[in-house]
Nucleic acid binder design. Structure first.
Lengths: 341, 341
DNA sequence: ATATGCGGGACTAAATATGACCCTGATGTA
DNA sequence: TACATCAGGGTCATATTTAGTCCCGCATAT
């Protein structure tokens, strides 16, 4: 942590608290604007009057403006929010936490996003933003980017900035359709990201898990075969991590199968594979998407995970491969270090 | 000012106030330790109870310790004080003030010390410390350092750190004896500084101002002649600035002479010469010390000045020569920019 | 028309900060 | 040795700030 921060925390120890309080308020307004005072207070679990006091300060500093429709963040306020995130990163010494996690999980890079998802669901947006920037910085001309599904991934697509500087980018769904929600389908997310990157995309029009026979039939379709070949050439794989139990249910596996998988110690699911704590594959759903071998061969893997319930899944997947960039929230990050001790 | 500081001042505007309050308290204790709560409150003009609240914070942070004899600053506290001074320098954007002064006065370098001498006499100690560090960094082997008198200079000698790394350093008084106070005599100060630097020193055993005949007689004394020759070879001249009126009185000039000098518009005194606002010499006391020509030839001149009453004197002396390093307190620095507008 | 959610005002209760004074003990001085 | 002085700590009434709560008028959407 920088000298200057230590100095400040020493002489004005209450600084951290005030700063984080105001940051949270400002951020919440930003993500929900326009929003009223009462709603804000209720959602943040802070007294209405406290909000009012802080609002007055922020208004005076011209970080937010008040209209009859509700409060919203000014342009200056938006900039401040971005900078504050980095500042809080430093204030909480998250760089040290990142380094510790890199050692514990033995992976290339860890990015910890300030905040605890379990306490504040908005953290998902922050994680999405950070992840989208991270991915963006990795992309080179003619790269093939593999995308999985899930709410975290959907958020990444949402927050991904428009950047059409790279040529010939191809975005591929790395898994088929799963669950009911359109917004969180790999297909949908791939298309969204491709548009923002000014790239191409392909769709994988199949359910994620299939019976063996159905899989064989489907693999005879030329379009599907083409995508399958392309998936093997993925340069950057963006992977939302899942819990084994949740994903098994979402896949509509039979209760018997689920019990079987769980009995084998499955904690994590990724691209249709189920892994135990030690990163050993204990079950595999027959899928048209990425195989374990394909996964091992991908050069850049970005794993994104939010929430303490993903703790074990993260630890499992991280042991599969060292060339992983892991992006996660502070809450689950601390939980991992706690378990590692 | 650094990005991070702007950010903080924007989101926690009350930071500055709290920080400066605690800095002042800590600093006052440091310079007067051990000191009691009541005395402290009285001298700082803060309520006794306020002091108590702040003391509790500082104690909790282990920046000061409390004994039955009074409060004193811990080792950590001392370090914090030093760092805080730089921090406040940044917080108040004094670098910009320094640059502005360099332009206004057209001199090489300006160092502004945080605080207003007229409100807080302890600033003299800070100025002394900064000046002593500045001088220290200028010294090279075999340098001859010229020293004048005054309370500011005395403080520099006091705060000068022991540093015997340079060889063959010679410290010379650049003026004779003046006034009653032993502590502020150029002779005394020179000796003190020489000891701290592990160098040699010479003494100038003559009154600072003399009648012409007396001067001629004295100049025949070999020891005096020797020093006079050495003075012409001064590498670093450390100059405390004086007001014309004050110095004239301290020199015990006749009321008639004083009136004459003042009528000519004298505002500044330095090494026995009196200057008007434009830096023109209007009167000269016959002295064995530095001449105006000698002064112009010195390579490094460090001017030190404290207090708003020195405003005009500073502006006058600065116009004499561009190769000056000026060290002054924030109060008089701002006064100069105010006058320049 | 009306229900909802908005900011702002106002009043009370609680918490905190402040001021004022006393007490006891350590220390230095007569 | 006695005493004056100055130290920190305790205490308590009071001033000020902060927080909780409710109401009002207004804009907006239904």
């Amino acid at each position: 942590m920088s000298e200057i921060l230590k100095l400040q925390k020493k002489i004005v120890p209450e600084l951290t608290e005030i700063l984080e309080k105001r940051y949270n308020i400002l951020r919440y307004i930003y993500y929900n604007q326009p929003i009223g005072r009462r709603t804000l207070a209720g959602n943040l679990g802070i007294g209405e009057r406290v909000i009012r006091t802080e609002i007055n300060v922020l208004k005076k500093q011209e970080l937010l403006e008040i209209q009859s429709i509700g409060m919203s963040v000014t342009e200056e306020g938006k900039m401040i929010i971005d900078k504050l995130q980095d500042f809080i990163h430093a204030l909480r010494d998250l760089s040290s936490l990142e380094n510790r996690l890199q050692e514990i999980l033995m992976i290339k890079k860890v990015i910890v996003v300030p905040g605890t998802f379990d306490e504040d669901q908005l953290i998902l947006k922050d994680v999405g933003k950070i992840a989208s920037l991270c991915i963006n910085s990795m992309i080179k001309d003619n790269n093939i980017i593999g995308i999985t599904g899930g709410s975290t991934m959907a958020q990444i697509a949402e927050e991904m900035p428009e950047n059409k500087s790279k040529k010939g980018v191809l975005v591929l769904p790395a898994r088929g359709g799963l669950g009911k929600n359109l917004e969180t389908q790999a297909n949908n997310i791939s298309a969204k990201i491709a548009k923002k990157l000014g790239g191409m995309y392909k769709l994988l029009h199949v359910p994620d898990s299939l019976e063996k026979e159905a899989l064989e039939t489907i693999l005879k379709i030329p379009e599907i075969r083409e995508i399958r070949e392309l998936i093997k050439k993925i340069d950057i794989l963006v992977l939302g991590l899942g819990r084994a139990d949740e994903m098994a249910r979402r896949r509509k596996l039979s209760e018997k199968t689920i019990e079987e998988i769980m009995n084998k110690g499955a904690v994590a699911e990724a691209f249709g594979h189920y892994f135990n704590r030690d990163g050993q594959k204990v079950w595999e759903s027959s899928t048209v998407g990425l195989s374990l071998v394909d996964f091992q061969n991908v050069e850049n893997v970005v794993c994104i995970a939010c929430g303490k319930k993903k703790t074990e899944a993260i630890m499992s997947i991280a042991s599969l491969k060292s060339n992983i960039t892991l992006i996660l929230d502070e809450g689950v990050a601390r939980e991992i270090t706690r378990l590692a001790n």
